[in-house]
């Protein structure tokens, strides 16, 4: 492919990323202790021993889980990119890698500036007060003590935690906690902001303020990645969408068509679409690709068939 040009400046370049997790204590392979090991002949002593052994050793060893497979894309400054996909499709893992937190197993990633993850899971110290956590979180984002002092009041005001500032974070409601995390994470304007379903928490007023802040970051020529299960959030906030499925990147483009494609596989009309594609496959085999495309254009005017 030609190098994308124009006045667009890339901020994230992902080249053939693979990310593999190690999982311990659940056997060594996908077949350990699985149904495939079951023998019909339960009385056979040898098989009984083998099954007992398999059960005992079921917690020995480690297996590898491929969370992301061969994902490549280029993101540009000023873009707001939504990542959609079913649970366990590798969205969060991909985000953590973009934020520089989980190193890829193979493939390479380039970033234009500092990436910061804004996630509901961001870990601060629950037994420490909000005040202490602002200091820890803001310094971890790279602020100097003087900068933290300058930004402190702004963070407190945005988080709106009032008298809870000096109480341990474990006493906060979930809304308060996520407001504080959001306020800390956006205390500096990161070049690349990665939002992992953070906007689903908090009340309507806070969501509105949060959206406003994200828009501001985007307008400062930053790049925003958002994971959300809410189609309207993606359509409202993003101008590009990536669809991840089973670790692979399946679609990359405007949010509406990408969401449409995703909906075909997982939405409420998935059975209907499955039938249509089965039929299209049959037509393609019998009459060729163009006939199959023609068939699909009854429902999707952009349809094509490879």
């Amino acid at each position: 492919m030609d190098v994308p040009e124009g006045d667009r400046v890339p901020s994230v370049i992902a080249s053939h990323l693979d990310i593999t997790y190690r999982v311990y204590g659940s056997g060594t392979g996908s077949d350990a202790g699985g149904p495939g090991d079951r023998q019909v002949d339960n009385l056979d002593e040898e098989s009984l021993m083998r099954r007992l052994l398999a059960r005992g050793l079921g917690t020995v060893g480690r297996r590898e889980v491929q969370a992301v497979r061969d994902v490549s894309f280029v993101a540009y400054r000023g873009e707001s990119i939504g990542i959609v996909g079913a649970n366990g499709s590798g969205k969060s893992t991909l985000l953590r890698t973009i934020a520089g937190l989980v190193p890829p197993t193979s493939g390479r990633l380039w970033l234009g500036g500092r990436a910061s993850l804004l996630g509901v899971n961001a870990v601060l110290m629950p037994k420490l007060s909000g005040r202490d956590n602002i200091w820890i979180g803001a310094q971890a984002l790279g602020l100097s003590p003087a900068q933290v002092r300058a930004a402190f009041d702004d963070i407190v005001e945005f988080a709106d935690i009032g008298d809870f500032l000096d109480l341990p974070m474990s006493t906060y409601s979930s809304g308060m906690g996520s407001r504080l995390r959001f306020a800390i994470s956006t205390a500096i304007t990161p070049d690349i902001l990665v939002v992992d379903e953070a906007l689903s928490t908090g009340d309507a007023h806070f969501r509105a303020r949060a959206t406003e802040r994200i828009t501001a970051i985007r307008e400062n020529a930053g790049t925003v990645f958002v994971v959300s299960h809410n189609d309207s959030t993606i359509k409202k906030m993003c101008d590009r969408a990536l669809w991840m499925d089973n670790g692979k990147l399946l679609a990359d483009g405007e949010p509406t068509p990408v969401l449409g494609l995703y909906g075909r596989k997982y939405g409420k009309h998935r059975a209907v679409w499955r039938q249509r594609f089965d039929e299209a496959h049959r037509i393609a085999d019998a009459e060729g690709a163009e006939a199959a495309a023609e068939y699909l254009r009854r429902w999707d005017k952009n349809a094509s068939w490879e």
């Binding site: 492919m1 061969d70 894309f73 494609l261 594609f277 299209a280 094509s304």
Partner: peptide, 22 residues
């Protein structure tokens, strides 16, 4: 299993091209 793909993925940059762009 999805059939046709109206949004063909842009071809991935080769590793060298990605590096050059970066």
């Amino acid at each position: 299993e999805l059939g046709p793909d109206p949004l063909r993925l842009p071809d991935a940059l080769s590793d060298a091209a990605a590096e050059a762009l970066a």
